[in-house]
């Protein structure tokens, strides 16, 4: 029998998982505000159902399983507004939702276009790898590559010179490439 070793710690949820959850949500709902609302709902549902966490799945998998349900729920609401309730789900809500929450979900999610699925996987892979590298390097890489901040702004923010920044970007890109090598860079 597998040991239930995973612990739950809501104090670390935002720092550890918010970017990953955000990326997971935004590629599916394609709306920044909706994605943020879904993550808020996910965190709140997580708090409500913490008592049901058995430690069989990782905390992140558990939170993704909640988010996945929230996304389905979101689409269900949209569909019912349109009078096209096409998404059928079968789960309870409220205090008992934790009972279904610890299912071991894969982090992928069915989408109609194959390209979108690949891009979603790719996004998840990049965030996964960024989670594994030096947090400061990851932060600077994200600011430069994803948020497109000017070099000068990042340098001022961190009190570093431009050449320091490019060395950090280099370290981040090297670590990221190594992490992604096997599946994405060959």
């Amino acid at each position: 029998m597998a040991e239930n070793t995973h612990q739950i710690n809501p104090d670390k949820w935002v720092d550890s998982y918010s970017h990953y959850l955000f990326n997971y949500a935004i590629v599916r709902v394609n709306d920044r505000e909706v994605a943020k609302d879904l993550i808020s709902e996910t965190f709140l549902a997580g708090l409500r159902s913490m008592k049901y966490f058995k430690g069989e799945a990782t905390e992140r998998t558990w939170l993704i399983s909640i988010l996945k349900r929230k996304i389905i729920d979101h689409y269900r609401k949209i569909n019912s507004k349109k009078g096209q309730a096409e998404v059928k789900i079968n789960y309870t809500d409220g205090d008992h939702e934790g009972e279904w929450l610890e299912e071991k979900v894969a982090d992928n999610f069915e989408q109609s276009a194959e390209d979108e699925l690949v891009n979603n996987e790719l996004g998840a892979a990049i965030y996964n790898c960024l989670d594994k590298i030096n947090p400061k390097h990851a932060q600077i890489f994200k600011m430069k590559t994803i948020d497109n901040f000017d070099t000068e702004v990042i340098c001022n923010e961190f009190g570093i010179s431009a050449s320091n920044l490019w060395v950090i970007i280099h370290r981040a890109r090297t670590a990221l490439a190594e992490c992604m090598e096997e599946k994405w860079l060959k």
């Binding site: 955000f22 935004i26 891009n119 994200k142 994803i146 948020d147 992604m180 860079l185």
Partner: peptide
């Protein structure tokens, strides 16, 4: 490899939280 990494990052259409 660096060029490939840039292509992947663009393809993934990443966004981050502020």
């Amino acid at each position: 490899r660096n060029t490939k990494l840039t292509e992947l990052c663009k393809k993934a259409k990443l966004e981050t939280l502020k």
